[in-house]
Every structure is written in C-alpha cells, then in structure tokens.
Nucleic acid binder design. Structure first.
Lengths: 222, 222
DNA sequence: GCTGCCATTCGCCAAAGGTCGAACCTCGAC
DNA sequence: GTCGAGGTTCGACCTTTGGCGAATGGCAGC
C-alpha cells in the first residue's frame, strides 16, 4: 500500500490529480492539503509517505521555497511538481531543485499516470515536449535553496510571511506566539541565510519565486 | 547636431556603442556614463538630448527600474535598451516599459546603426530574430513601473539602495545626507508605491529586476 | 533514568525604522 | 515681483526590529 500526498489549492484540480493517482496506483491511500502549512502538517503525520504531488503556487509559499524546504527536511520523499506554467525553464528549475517530475496542469490523465508510476519506480519524468535543455541553476539560486532547506518548519513559516511584507506583530498573531518569539526566529533565519536584516531576507526569498508578484498584500486605504 | 547619451558599465562595450552611433550619425555628440547616478547627472545636464542607449544592468539599478523611471521623468527622450540577454521575452518587456528599441550585445555594428537611425526617425526597432510575441506586461509589473516612474530622482536613488538591502544609515552616508532625510524619502516612497514598510518596498522593486540576484551585498563574516 | 542537543518560546534592552511638522530652495505661473 | 507647488533637508518623537540570555520540552544515545 502506498501513501500519496497531494497539495494544491484548487479543489477541482486536486480531485483530478487524486483520480489520476488512483488510476496509476489503485491501492494507494491519498491525502490532500490545500496550503503549505496544511501540507507540512500532513507530512509530519505521515513521515513515511511514498509520493508527494504539489503545486508551486499555494497559500503560504510561492515558488520554489516550499519545494526546497521539503527536499531539505524530507530528502526521502519523492516529489512531483504540478504547475500551470508550460515553460520548460520552470520545469527544469523544479527538477534542479530536487523534484522527481514536472507536470503542467494541461497534461492529460495518461501523462500523470505515467509520471506517477515512473517516480514510484525511482525514475525522473518530464513530459516529452519539455525534455531537453540544461538542468543547472544559477549559483545564486542554488545557494539560496540550500540555505532555505536548513530552516526549521517554524522558521520557514516565518520566512514566507516576511516575504509577504508582514510585520513581526502580524506574524506573531498568525502563528499564535509572542512577538519576541518571532524575533528569535528572525535572528536564526538571518544567520542561516547569511544576511543581516529583514529586507535582505525578503529579497533572498523572492529569488525562489516562480514569477514575481507585484505588491505584497496590503490591507490599507493608501 | 544630435546629442546621444550612452550608459553602460563595461568600458569596451561603451566604446563599441559609441563607434556604432557615430557610424549611424556622423555629426552626433556622444556623452557617456558608467552608472545610473552618472546617467541621471548626464540627463539633467543635457535635458534636450536626442537619444539614450542604456544597459539594463548597471551599478545603481538592476533591471527595468531605471528605464521605468527615465520614461516617467523624461518621456520625450527616445531610449534604446542594450543587454546581454538574448531572450525575446526581455526585449519585449523592455519595449513594453517604453523603450524604442532593444539591442542584444551580440548584435553586429550594422544592426546597431540600423536601430539608431530607426529610433531617431521616431520608429521602434527590434532585431529580426526577436520580432513577434506579445507586448503586454503583467498588470502587476506595469503597476509597479508606473509608480516607480513617479519617484523623484533622490527617491529613486534611495529605492535602489533599499533594494540592495542597505540600512538607512548606509544610504544616508552614501548620499551625503542625514539619516532623517533618508527616512523622509522612505516615507514618500512607501506612499507612492502604496505599501507600508521597507520590506514591501524592496519586494516591489525586485519585481522590476530582469533576473533575480541571490544575495544582497553583505560585507560581513557570517 | 540520565544527558546532551536542539527547536521553540519569551522578556529585556539597544538599534533601526517611520511619522510629523517645518525650514529652505528652485522654478514656473500669474 | 509675487505666489504657490513641490523637492530636499532636518529634528523630535514613537514604533518596530534585532540581539542576548534563559527557560521549557521533545528526542536520541548512553
């Protein structure tokens, strides 16, 4: 029996992925999450899961940071990245960040089945139309990814909230801890990333984004 | 007689561009700058210049922010963007940000001559191999660019230093003003960009980068 | 059980960031 | 010339941030 984790914030697509996984592995047990925090809770409750399919764009983390972190914390968990982007560049970056396969959301069920079986057999899989090209990351990006992988789960949550431009006070409220605690995590994050202030943390995190989002979520009447 | 401005931080390439411009317009007066601050000083001293050729990657501003700002401050100055990138995506983004032409650094002198003459005639020019594709920017990016265009010169300098992760104290020293002044500029920048803290300013600025640089310049021994 | 390690938590204090009000200057409009 | 708008500058004051030391609790190894 196989435990398969699916993380996507789009319910319809989550169901479609689930059906595709069951078509590939009829006796699989599928667990789903709709956000990065939920995904991490899921992984912790099922540390011996056999496969993870995750979207690159979910509440709680944009881009490759969640992937980098998972690869660092759970190197034994094969991961298939699912994304709405068709570009081969993004697919190859996902593989360079440690994913075992990349599936564009336009893929047919047969392709997903093929990918799931390949990864469960220990192979790496790419859709035919995206094969080819270099697998190398810029030294910069690989460096950031390696450092993000060393963050603890709580530090990682804080990192993503910093990357949304939130204040320590807001982060503390969301996490249900005191502001002092968030500051302690900040200090640890800055040490691990090798930078010296919050702005540089945010910039480093932004380098792992797939695409740049214009404005951080600000709920004010400017 | 035509005044032509050339901004590039690579001396050899700056000279090559100068020769190409003179080949295209023999009676042109060429003025050069090797950084964004020098370029702005140049523009201010020659407000009626006829043409600007600028690199996208220079000390003082990475990416499209300098272009966006110049287009906002001096809409009458035709601008040719020069860059080491070959991707059509970057060329089209440059045009979408208001450039009149895009020249990859691999271009032949004849192509540069052709581009310069076309732009001086009021045309838009792209190398043949890059023609085609969409000219639209993501709404996000266009929004940030429009806001950056409203910044005053000094505010723009401060913005770029924030995007490098510098402290107010360091910015104040570099600009030769007091820390209080930098803070006042910060307040104005945040208002114009519609955000509420320094981290969000840095993130907004990073969306105008051509490529993401991993770590801000930190001079510390971690 | 005991020990050491580390993630998480927190209070306190110093440093950096951000707002407000105001002065000075330039430049274009009247 | 006079006026007003806006860019640049600054000091005073409050808020946010970041470092340090320390307590707690889980967990692996002895």
């Amino acid at each position: 029996m196989s435990d398969v984790l699916i993380a996507d914030d789009h319910p319809l697509f989550r169901d479609a992925l689930q059906r595709a996984v069951l078509a590939a592995v009829p006796d699989a047990t599928v667990h789903t999450a709709d956000s990065v925090p939920a995904l991490f809770a899921l992984i912790e409750s099922l540390p011996d899961a056999d496969l993870l399919l995750m979207d690159l764009h979910m509440p709680g983390a944009r881009g490759y940071s969640a992937l980098a972190h998972i690869r660092g914390q759970y190197p034994g968990l094969p991961t298939i990245v699912v994304s709405g982007h068709e570009e081969g560049q993004i697919a190859r970056r996902a593989l360079a960040h440690g994913a075992s396969a990349y599936i564009p959301k336009s893929a047919a069920v047969e392709q997903i089945v093929e990918a799931v079986r390949a990864v469960l057999d220990g192979d790496v899989w790419l859709p035919h139309q995206l094969v080819g090209g270099s697998l190398e990351l810029k030294a910069d990006e690989a460096d950031v990814a390696a450092r993000v992988a060393t963050l603890t789960p709580q530090q990682f949550r804080v990192l993503n909230m910093i990357a949304e431009g939130l204040l320590n006070k807001q982060i503390a409220f969301d996490l249900g801890v005191s502001e002092a605690t968030v500051k302690a995590h900040m200090t640890a994050i800055m040490r691990k990333l090798g930078v010296s202030n919050r702005t540089q943390v945010a910039l480093a995190a932004s380098h792992l984004d797939v695409e740049k989002e214009a404005f951080p979520g600000v709920s004010q009447e400017g």
